[in-house]
Amino acid sequence: MEVVPISIAAAAALLSVAATYLAVRSGDLLAAVVLSAVQSVAYALIYYILMAPDIALVYIPVSVGVLPAVTVLLIKKTERYEV
């Protein structure tokens, strides 16, 4: 029964690696913002499983709330597609 949460955390970590790679390689910056939101959600689940709900409670507003807001505002002011 102890191995269940740790294996969920391992799956979330692998998923965050894949999402980060695709976000770096993506040419559409808005798609990169969405993929980085997937990475943030996976990290929030990892913090939750490692019994740190206070860190998750700070990480979720910063990384799902503030960072995409600032990035979307920045994309709106400049360009959406990379060259």
Binding site: V41, A44, Y48, M51, P53, A56, L57, I60, P61, V64
Partner: peptide, 8 residues
């Protein structure tokens, strides 16, 4: 630990 779900 239930509060994280609400925030998310």
């Amino acid at each position: 630990m239930v509060v994280c779900g609400l925030a998310l």
